[in-house]
Amino acid sequence: MRKPLYGLMAEFETPEQLVRAAEAAHHEGYRKMDAYSPLPIEELHHAMHIPDSPLPKFVLAGGIAGMIGGFGLLYWIAAITYPLNVGGRPYNSWPAFIPITFETTVLLAGLTTLVTLVFLCGFPMPYHPVFNVPRFKHASRDRFFLCIEAEDTKFDLQRTKEFLRTLHAHEVAEVEI
């Protein structure tokens, strides 16, 4: 009995070939697929119709939390729990709180960026089926890969393989789970 397949992986030599292949695959109706490249390729996002990353929204929320939290902390220290009367000046001396409020804003927004990035990518993920393809180690060096996943409704081992061959793929490999 054959092992279940994760998908079919086509290898390309240049970013342009990969972009064209991804475009063609999307045009053909394939949706559950992913492209792998050693460098970011902006055109690929358009070719695969990848939606804009929601990351900035999380970062904005983190930054606002840091801003409110930071200012709130200072207000609470200076005006509520530990008020010091310095020559009758107001306890809520807000201009003096701005530098720290700025720093806590950046701190929380920055940490949120890291956490959100790791979360959105599903990291840490030490195992993934694509690593089973021996040639895939070139995806972090000099080669470009397009993997059409078996879960896709249009996926058919023979037909998808032939389709990938028409795209001038250097090699088409079966990806085992």
Partner: peptide, 14 residues
């Protein structure tokens, strides 16, 4: 962390 150069990941990463 299991980086594999996925286009979806690059999208978040950039």
């Amino acid at each position: 962390l299991g980086w594999r150069g996925s286009a979806r990941h690059w999208n978040h990463y950039e």
